[in-house]
Every structure is written in C-alpha cells, then in structure tokens.
C-alpha cells in the first residue's frame, strides 16, 4: 500500500519537485560563489568576516526554500483528492486514519530528496571554498535543519489540508482574525493605556511559535553553512 502511495505522490509532484530539488542543491553553491578560491589555490581569499557576512546574506533563503518545498509537498498530497471529491479514497478498504498517515508518510520520504540535494550541495560548496583559519563549514547540520524545516512545513500544511475546505477556512480565518485583531487591539487599545509591552499577545504567540517550543522554532535557528 505504501509503495504505490509513494509512487502516486511522486507522480503528482515530480514536475514541481524536481526544480526545487535542483534549487536545494544549487543554493549552497550560489551562497558561497565569489567567496574565494578553491583549496590549494594561491589567489587571495576574502577575510573570515567577509565570508561570514556574505554567506549571511543568503541565510533567509534557506528556510524560505524549505517552507516552499514543504508547502508544495503538502498541497500536492491532497490536491487530487480534493479535486476528485475524495470519492476514490473513501471507496478504498482502509480507514481514514490509515489513508491520511500513508499519504503523510509518502510526503515525508519525498522530503528526503531536497534534503539530500541540499546535503550534497552543501558539501560541494564547503569543498569549493578555502576557509580561513577559525571558520568551519557545517553541511551536515545545514542539511539536517533543512530537512526538519521541510518536514515541519509539510506536516503543518498537510494537517490543515487534510480537513474539509470548511475546516481549513476556519483555521485560516481564525489565524487571520487573531493576528489582525491582536494587532489592532495592540495598536488601538494597549498603546493608548501604555500597556503594549506587557500584553503584546500577538508578539508573545509569534515568539512562542518561532522561538520557544513552538513548531516553527527550527526555522529561526542558525542556518549558517559557514561559521566560526
């Protein structure tokens, strides 16, 4: 059951996934391009500071790419089921839980492809640059973080897309209402009474989501390929 499900997911997504896999491979290489000569070359290299600063410019692109891959995987997972009204899935002899988990598992395995590409690309990038003393390349850590970020983005959106359209709209609507309502209340009310800092609900929730123990914490960690 799992293998055909994986194959189906692959067929559904390959047109979109292949460019993303290529991008995953290329991104680390692009991030280090122009940073200096290959090992063994006698040409002048950039300073450690220059290298770290220049690679830092690319850092936001890594989590963004991971999020894009996760979203693509998740939405493609349910796309045809939604379009075909779920009739096929519901006529198959397995419970809805089994079906959803099989599907999710298939996407998780496909997430390994861009992560593997990132790993190879990061190793190639690390090899391509002669690093000054004190700097190190972290291709394994970067690829692992990339994989985690894809999986988190994928599972979040997969869970949302697994619901009915009505459920999904409810979730999105509530999130939007929370953010807009929270911002408005913060701006209009809390600022007026001088309590903005203490009751910044939206800020606190965002902080938890991205920095605390929230699901998106992995997106805000250190994405450096090259660091001290």
């Amino acid at each position: 059951m799992y293998q055909p499900m994986l194959y189906l997911h692959w067929k559904q997504i390959r047109v979109a996934l292949i460019p993303l896999v290529v991008a995953s491979f290329g991104l680390p290489l692009v991030a280090v391009s122009g940073l200096g000569p290959a090992p063994g070359s006698t040409a002048t290299s950039l300073s450690a500071y220059g290298i770290v600063e220049l690679t830092r410019l690319w850092l936001p692109v890594f989590p963004a790419l991971a999020a894009a891959i996760g979203a693509t995987l998740a939405l493609s997972a349910w796309n045809w089921d939604h379009r075909l009204g779920h009739v096929y899935a519901l006529s198959l002899p397995l419970t809805r839980v089994e079906y959803a988990l099989l599907k999710m598992g298939a996407g998780m395995v496909l997430a390994l492809l861009p992560a593997l590409a990132m790993w190879l690309g990061a190793h190639a990038a690390a090899w391509a640059v002669a690093l000054p003393e004190g700097l190190n390349a972290y291709p394994n850590q970067l690829a692992f973080r990339f994989l985690l970020a894809i999986m988190i983005a994928y599972s979040t959106l997969f869970a949302m897309a697994a619901g009915t359209v009505r459920t999904t709209l409810w979730i999105v609507g509530l999130a939007a209402a929370f953010v807009v309502g929270g911002l408005l209340s913060a701006d209009l009310v809390l600022t007026q009474v001088g309590a903005f800092e203490r009751f910044d609900v939206v800020g606190s929730v965002m902080d938890w989501l991205y920095r605390g123990t929230g699901p998106f914490q992995v997106f805000t960690g250190n994405w450096s390929l090259i660091d001290v």
Binding site: R96, M104, M108, S155, F158, G163, P215
Partner: peptide, 14 residues
C-alpha cells in the same frame, strides 16, 4: 510537532 500534526491530519473526516 510532526507527530502532533500527524495526529491532527488523521482526524481527517470521511
């Protein structure tokens, strides 16, 4: 979190 989301996804209704 992935396990939590998987649990939520498995609530997908028939």
């Amino acid at each position: 979190w992935i396990l939590i989301f998987a649990a939520l996804a498995s609530r997908s209704t028939r």
